[in-house]
Design a protein around this nucleic acid. Structure first.
Lengths: 129, 129
DNA sequence: CTTGACCTTCCCACTGTAGCAAGCCCCATC
DNA sequence: GATGGGGCTTGCTACAGTGGGAAGGTCAAG
């Protein structure tokens, strides 16, 4: 199966499939003409990668999750730890963003938002600690 | 004032000050020896930039906010729109991250997390839509 | 044989920050 | 006057992840 069809079947772009290969997440057989050749099992791997990326796992985590996925003797504890560490990172970032959003919303609420120049948002950016 | 002291006074790194200058956010006088020379007003600009970046405004927004800040005839509505658009972007990203965190937490809650290989997290990554 | 769709590799862009290197400048100390 | 250390200059590299595109090989249909 060509990379184009593998892309269609997996939901990834051909570009990204090549990138993930270069990053060592998978390897592809090559036909005599140099084209990459994908089997069903490869599609499953590619879909796994897409799903992990959809949950914002960094490529390094995806690499580890793939290794565990392929290892029949894995300990589910290892998978769980990767996932929960990632959850903590996600929640920390999300909370930081929402704190920023809250304080900006608060400032914007006190901004006239008309043609006058006075604006507590600019005041705050000027004076913030 | 040297860039080193400007960095200390503004809370930015000298590296970043040069970068923001290259990005056109500010310009610095030059001494005959080629050194950048900063005045008090420049420190205020640098602090403004730092505060805006602390609220995760992208550099493009910082550029616009700086232009409005410098414009005595600005309309506060323009500032408010930039801020609220950014708030919306922040909240959208934060919500997306928390949705990911929620679903991963849910999966992790059903994972034994011991030495057995069975793991709903991997199952989900394999089967996700 | 030509056309068009596919494939290959390689380079560049983005965002924002940091590190390193070569070379110049200034000041203090000897 | 020379030397050393710290600051300054520029420019390259890298990160993570994705997209764009160029230049070229390959294959099938017409």
């Amino acid at each position: 199966m060509n990379i184009g069809e593998a892309a269609r079947r997996s939901g990834l772009s051909a570009k990204m499939i090549r990138h993930y290969e270069a990053e060592g997440l998978l390897s592809a057989r090559r036909l005599p003409n140099g084209y990459r050749d994908y089997a069903e099992a490869d599609i499953a791997v590619l879909r796994f990668i897409r799903h992990a990326r959809a949950l914002a796992f960094p490529l390094e985590d995806v690499r580890r999750l793939l290794a565990l996925w392929r290892d029949r003797h894995r300990a589910s504890a290892d998978v769980r730890r990767i996932a929960l560490d990632h959850v903590a990172a996600l929640e920390a970032k999300a909370e930081a963003m929402q704190a920023m959003a809250r304080s900006l919303r608060h400032l914007a609420a006190h901004c006239h938002g008309d043609s006058r120049p006075d604006c507590p948002i600019l005041d705050e950016l000027e004076k913030m600690p």
